[in-house]
Simulated assay, not measured.
Amino acid sequence: MARWQPGTRERLMSVALQLFAERGFEQTTVAEIAAAAEVTERTFFRHFADKREVLFSGQDDFVALFLDPIAQAPDDTAPFDLIAQALEATGSFFPDDRRAWSQMRQPIIEGEPSLRERELGKLATLTVRIGQALRERGVTEPAATLAAETGVTVFHLSFQQWIAPDEDRSLSEIVHERMRALTELLHPGH
Rank of each mutant, 00 (worst) to 15 (best):
M1S: 13
R3C: 11
W4T: 13
P6R: 11
R9W: 08
L17F: 06
F20R: 00
F25I: 08
E26D: 15
Q27T: 10
V30L: 03
V30R: 01
A31Q: 13
A31Y: 13
E41P: 04
E41K: 11
F44N: 03
F45G: 11
R46S: 13
H47C: 07
F48Q: 08
A49Q: 14
D50R: 11
R52Q: 14
E53R: 12
L55H: 03
S57H: 15
G58D: 02
Q59P: 09
D60A: 15
F66K: 02
F66C: 01
L67G: 03
Q72I: 10
D75N: 12
A78M: 12
P79T: 03
A84V: 11
Q85L: 12
F93H: 07
P95T: 06
D96H: 15
D96L: 15
D96F: 14
A100H: 12
Q103Y: 03
M104Y: 10
R105C: 04
Q106D: 01
Q106M: 03
Q106T: 01
I109S: 01
S114M: 14
L115I: 08
L115H: 07
E119Y: 03
K122N: 13
K122Y: 12
A124H: 10
A124C: 10
T125P: 05
L126A: 03
T127K: 01
V128H: 14
R129T: 10
I130H: 00
G131T: 05
R135P: 05
T140G: 14
T140Q: 15
T140W: 10
A143F: 08
A143R: 07
A144N: 04
A147E: 01
A148M: 05
G151F: 00
S158Y: 00
F159V: 00
W162K: 00
W162V: 00
W162Y: 03
P165Q: 08
P165M: 06
D168W: 12
E173T: 04
E173V: 02
V175N: 02
V175M: 06
E177K: 10
R178C: 02
R180A: 12
E184L: 13
H187V: 14
H187N: 14
